[in-house]
Amino acid sequence: MREKIILMLVLLFLGVLIILPLCVVFLLSIVPRWSSVFPTSFSFEWWLAILKPKFTKVILNTLLVTAVSTLITVGYAIIASYLFAFYDFRGKEILSSLILSPTYVAGVVLALGLLTMYPLIRNTFWILMLGHFVVISPIVFRCVLSSMIKIPNNLIEASYSLGSSKANTFWRIVLPLSKQGILSGTVLSIGTNISELSVSLLLYGAGWATIPIQIYLERGWGILGIAGVLSTILILITLTTVFCVDYLGGKKP
């Protein structure tokens, strides 16, 4: 009995702390003015305001950056994990900590570095994408590697001894067996790409604002309704990808 009460308290604690803010974000987008405990009236004026070309461009920017960066990040993570899982070479430890360490450096510092090193592509889509890649590749790499490292080596050897080529083995054995890791890496990549703020804060140029940047700018101007709508869209995109990938991952080939 006592245990049940403790468990309920833990769930209540986490629920209030984590779920409540997410609900409030959604409510913000449909409440014109909020000045009591519960909102008194609802309207979709903020949702209509979002249809202006200024905001649709921001949403398209975010989707484009997310798509390109996810593609490149996941590709790189697969190649790097393949190298780490099936080859031995000198300096393996050093290289893996090199790939993983951007997670533990401030996003603004990474962005400053990229701006110093590549001033020619300042204010373009490319530097924004590079910034996203640097921050997100460690997370995806860790995810893909953890599933690729579990592939039993004798499966690979069996494939070779039956005359299969390296490329064929990679395509037919390694990729399908690490599908779970690759899919969850993709979800993580999409989620972090969409909500990435610290790197893009320095890197976004004229015309390349993403949703989090726009939320930051809107809030600076004192308009919270638009920020609520954009945040809701952000959460919806993330949840949709999580469920889609979960569904795809659950399907047996």
């Binding site: 409540l20 803010p21 909500s195 945040s231 959460i235």
Partner: peptide, 14 residues
């Protein structure tokens, strides 16, 4: 997978 910035905006409203 959620933006910490959005999270903080919600905190302001709570």
């Amino acid at each position: 997978v959620f933006s910490s910035y959005v999270f903080c905006i919600a905190l302001i409203y709570i």
